[in-house]
Amino acid sequence: MKKLSVLFAAVIMVVSVSMAKAQKLATVDLMGVLNAMPEKKKADTDIKAFLDVKQAEIKKKTDAAQAKFQQYQAEAPKKTADENTAREAEMKKLGDEIQQMQEKAQKDLQAKQDVAFGPIEKKLNDAIEKVAKANGYEFIMDANAGALVYKAGADATAAVKKELGIN
């Protein structure tokens, strides 16, 4: 019975090794490919410009609110309690407006990123799929992913870049 168990274990090992060898595995440096794509460079530039505009708008509103707050603080001793209460309510309203501006800017930025990077991601995924089929790869893993445990397979980065027409 013991010999049968050892024989069975040996057969399982041989089958496992042959199955593992039958699978073609490749890695690709996704960030390297993405950063080399001209479309991504343009999208990054557009998004940075968009973000700069939104941050400037928020800064302008924040600076105006800060100046008004300092003015109100300086004038507070000379004003009535009702006037100071009204000014506090006005400052709270300004703070709420600034917070809403920030939230809207964040949502707008996310929407702009989705629109800009969607076609780039699709193009990259299509190129990876085409390279995988052309070279018989069963798996292509991101070489930078923390989940990568084995990186001795072929590297498809050059083939994907060639497919995309970039260096």
Score class of each variant (00 low, 15 high):
residue 64 A to S: 13
residue 78 K to H: 15
residue 69 F to Q: 10
residue 123 K to I: 06
residue 75 E to M: 13
residue 71 Q to A: 14
residue 103 E to M: 13
residue 93 K to I: 03
residue 113 Q to S: 12
residue 110 Q to E: 13
residue 103 E to H: 05
residue 74 A to G: 14
residue 115 V to Q: 14
residue 86 A to K: 05
residue 86 A to S: 11
residue 89 A to R: 03
residue 75 E to G: 12
residue 126 D to G: 06
residue 102 Q to R: 13
residue 125 N to H: 07
residue 91 M to V: 03
residue 124 L to G: 00
residue 91 M to Y: 08
residue 92 K to Y: 01
residue 132 A to C: 01
residue 127 A to Y: 01
residue 72 Y to K: 05
residue 117 F to G: 03
residue 81 A to L: 12
residue 68 K to D: 07
residue 88 E to V: 00
residue 114 D to S: 14
residue 79 K to T: 11
residue 111 A to Y: 06
residue 107 K to Q: 13
residue 94 L to I: 15
residue 94 L to M: 11
residue 68 K to V: 06
residue 106 Q to S: 12
residue 74 A to P: 06
residue 77 P to N: 07
residue 121 E to K: 14
residue 76 A to V: 13
residue 114 D to R: 14
residue 84 N to S: 02
residue 117 F to C: 12
residue 125 N to V: 15
residue 65 A to C: 03
residue 135 N to C: 00
residue 117 F to A: 11
residue 78 K to D: 12
residue 135 N to V: 05
residue 134 A to S: 14
residue 98 I to S: 00
residue 98 I to H: 02
residue 91 M to D: 01
residue 110 Q to K: 10
residue 116 A to C: 08
residue 105 A to L: 03
residue 114 D to W: 00
residue 123 K to V: 05
residue 67 A to C: 04
residue 92 K to S: 00
residue 82 D to W: 03
